[in-house]
Amino acid sequence: MIIAIDATSIGSGLGGDETLARGLLRGLARAVRAGDQVLVLAAHGAELPREALVDPAFAVERVTRRPGAVHFTLTMPWWLFRLADRGLRPDVVVATTHAPVRSPAPVALLVTDLSFRHVPDAYPAATRARLRLLIGRQVTTAAAVLTISEFCRQDLIATYGLPPAAVTVVPLSVDEPSPVDPPVRADLRRRGVREPYLLYLGNLHPRKNVPRAIAAFRRLQREPDAALESLQLVVAGRAWFGSSAEASAAAGAPAGAVLFLDRVSDAEREALLRDAVGLVYLSTFEGFGLPPLEAMARDTPVLASTATAIPEVCGDGALLVDPRDDGAIVAGMRRLVADGDLRERLVRAGRARVAHYGPAATGAALYGALTAVAARGATTPRGAHSPRTRLAG
């Protein structure tokens, strides 16, 4: 089987998309069989997983990263048809969020969530319109639809009327912990990180609910407990769409109590996760939610949301609270910091939870879905639509 996969998100600065693409490549490296080929489209200078660089089944072609409209209308089609002209016509193409407008081979489209439909006010009008129009069309013209949780699978089926057999869950995988680089830890201290601290890790998209987490943290600090007074909240992530709600929520807090780090490197991420008292992840809409699993892999207790896919992913490895209940959030933070028995239980359960989300599981699910597409030789999900709406090519 010849698999073509778009990995140009790696190196883009879009943390979740990068983590997803790296996990898919690592998973495929575990799953491919003798005679398979994995053709990877990557951006110049992007650091790919080692597996994609040393495995003889993988071949990487580098391109200049372009805006999405150019990438899906020009770059990807050019690459795919160029492969076909060289006798490397893929059996299946893996694309994320959007499919190429033309393809010589069936496309497996990976859609991470439908938050643009369920929390539309969290997106600028133009972005929301693009996602609604293109994803709504492309999930019915793809040869297979992939997604990252059973919650998302059921949402896709219900929202777009897709046949259940056409939608497959390919779970994300958690990177193995790596040693902390002492200079990185020292630099974080110079930038204002101090222990003990709670950590939020992820982008500052409105649905991540970070302003509410900040407000709850400030309430917690006002409680008459010296241990809580010294606690810090570190917010590591880049704001989307120019949001200032997080900074507004922190206005008036004691100096250094709430620290914003913007986007952090992988090495900084490792240090922050390992040294935190706990991770706070209170998103109101999530297709998966990888940071809680990353924290669990590093024995860091997690306070997470009861919303959407998060309970499915976290299971009993996190303390779950209603992300819209301010009192429950404050109480959850207090327990996460002060309840030693709870912390020990969460660490044990978290280790067990992480074991379900490795590259082997990702690769097995992805390879199985792609094998089914290649075997059918189809360009659409069975029963999803009429032949007139199939992919061009």
Rank of each mutant, 00 (worst) to 15 (best):
R219E: 15
L110N: 12
P100H: 01
V70S: 12
S149M: 00
S244P: 06
G35F: 13
G287A: 07
I310T: 15
A374S: 10
G136F: 01
A226Q: 15
A338F: 04
W240A: 11
D175P: 13
A226L: 14
T75C: 07
I214N: 03
V111I: 13
A52E: 00
S149C: 00
L74W: 15
V337P: 06
M1L: 11
F72D: 12
A352D: 11
Y281M: 01
T73D: 13
V258C: 01
Y200H: 14
C314P: 04
R66S: 12
P292H: 09
V302M: 07
H118T: 13
L199A: 05
V32Y: 02
V93C: 03
T141F: 09
F58E: 02
A249E: 01
G192I: 03
A365M: 13
P182A: 12
R222C: 07
A226Y: 13
R117K: 12
Q232D: 07
E294F: 00
L74I: 13
V167G: 10
L114G: 00
S283E: 01
V258F: 02
L134C: 10
P224S: 09
A46D: 13
L228Q: 08
A213M: 12
V330D: 14
P106Y: 11
F288Y: 05
E176S: 14
R128K: 14
L279G: 03
P171Q: 07
P164K: 10
Q37A: 15
L231W: 11
A42G: 01
P163L: 13
G332Q: 08
P77A: 04
I310R: 11
A213V: 12
L261V: 09
R343I: 04
S178H: 09
I3G: 02
A307P: 07
S305M: 02
L290S: 06
D341P: 05
P120H: 00
A227L: 10
L201N: 06
T308Y: 05
T96N: 14
A255W: 07
R190N: 08
L346D: 04
A144V: 04
T19C: 03
A250N: 01
H71M: 03
E61F: 08
A271K: 02
P183Q: 09
G45T: 14
V94H: 00
H118Y: 11
A309S: 01
C314V: 14
T75H: 05
P90W: 02
L198E: 02
A375V: 07
I157H: 05
A46V: 11
I157T: 11
M76E: 15
V169A: 06
E229G: 14
Y281W: 11
V354K: 13
V111C: 06
L41V: 00
D225K: 08
A213T: 13
N203G: 11
A365V: 14
S149L: 00
G27K: 07
S230L: 08
